[in-house]
Design a protein around this nucleic acid. Structure first.
Lengths: 242, 242
DNA sequence: CGCTGGATGCGAACGGTGTACGCATGTGAA
DNA sequence: TTCACATGCGTACACCGTTCGCATCCAGCG
């Protein structure tokens, strides 16, 4: 549309300039970086090879020179963001360190909710080097604390965090889809939820006991997480020689 | 292809016979039932509206007379299979009952692995009547046992089960994709895993300690699950007045 | 009985997806 | 200069979920 439109290849100086122009050429690193940006911003459904290509000023199929398949790209994306997860370090206070690691893991999952969708197919079993280092750090933490079988401890903590984050990200996705702030959405949902809970004694009681579910929901979610995490850590502490 | 081919509508007795023939006409119930069968058998990627239609001797678009959208169909499918999950019942032995409920939940998730992919977007927050009843039953179990805040207990147990099942179904999907029996796949994977674990003290030690990972893997997975579940339940027991 | 209106099935089509293929081009080595 | 190779990409294929309008069937009514 502009003056220098190049609808046809136009073999000229302008065409040559592209090679050393602002675009640093396509490479695996930038592809993965941009894919992560799209995933974080708009979720897993928003990423398509064509859109990703467009974002990189490239055709969709050009990406396949650097990445075998979309699934491989997703694996690379996961492994890349795992790098930002701080590796748990042993500590005289194992419980505090484990607590910290669990909160960090939760925050990481909430920051990259699309990993939850990938986890269901890839699992923690997949052995990218970064993930391996994270799990090793956690296991070491428990081993140093004196646990006879550190694997049980890592299983318990990681499974708890993943499970909790699963329902939490799903909830947040629902909230986001509503377009409202979380508190408003809760307030609007309350009557229906209360009615659904009627007929179930304990659930109904729970609703009556809680005074204001809509106040500061993010903090309440964090407390919920911390509360049940304490249960798991209590159980672990029992396994340690007094 | 056969003698009575009806490529064109052919308004005849044959056309009329379809109405009361073996096909009981399309209805929501049979659509959901067949969708579940396909999901259980071949996973979430194997379900498409066209294939589901073909399985029901119907065109793909006919399904939309009975189901608004594929997402709605998935919700219906989830709620339908939740019905087969036994509602936890209180018991003098709360711990045994909770253990049983957890194992039942795990088995259910493993039997319908595609729910894991759905959970990431729908979560346990979605309030189908059947799921509501299940969660109410579990909460009641803990309330009757004397827990001051039964919600914490259900959070801990459910999150643990979901998290554990996430990695387990992902692992099983990987195994299935390999085409080998689980034991063979493990045996083939061992060298690579051992090498990946080298450099991580605790992980390496863990590999040396375990004698035969490939023997009866299903039982080993079950034990793994039971072991860390015991941690969670121990933690819960602490919260009960002695 | 004949009619008619609503429910139901479905073929065609639209816009999207992941990816295979083959052609064009620019670049570095011989 | 030439040649081989790496890279970008236009086209195309098979599939996806879903919309639309048309054909058909059946129930209820006149």
């Amino acid at each position: 549309m502009a003056a220098g439109s190049t609808q046809k290849p136009l073999p000229s100086v302008w065409a040559r300039s592209r090679s050393d122009a602002e675009q640093p050429a396509l490479n695996r690193e930038s592809i993965v970086r941009e894919a992560i940006a799209m995933l974080d911003a708009d979720g897993i459904e928003a990423l398509s090879m064509r859109k990703l290509g467009a974002r990189l000023n490239a055709g969709a199929t050009s990406l396949y020179r650097h990445v075998a398949t979309k699934d491989e790209l997703m694996e690379l994306a996961v492994d890349a963001i795992v790098a930002e997860l701080p590796i748990p370090r042993g500590d005289a206070n194992w419980r505090g360190a484990a607590e910290e690691a669990a909160h960090a893991f939760r925050g990481w999952l909430l920051r990259h909710p699309w990993t939850m969708s990938v986890l269901g197919q890839m699992g923690l079993a997949y052995l990218g080097p970064n993930l391996m280092a994270y799990m090793a750090g956690l296991a070491e933490l428990f081993a140093d604390a004196g646990f006879a079988d550190p694997a049980i401890a890592t299983d318990a903590v990681l499974a708890y965090v993943v499970g909790m984050a699963t329902t939490e990200t799903a909830w947040l996705a629902t909230v986001a889809r509503s377009g409202e702030p979380e508190a408003d959405f809760i307030a609007r949902l309350m009557p229906a939820a209360r009615e659904a809970a009627a007929g179930h004694r304990v659930l109904a009681e729970a609703y009556e006991r809680t005074r204001d579910l809509a106040a500061d929901p993010a903090t309440q979610r964090e407390e919920k997480f911390a509360n049940a995490l304490a249960v798991v850590l209590d159980g672990l502490a029992l396994r340690l020689p007094a």
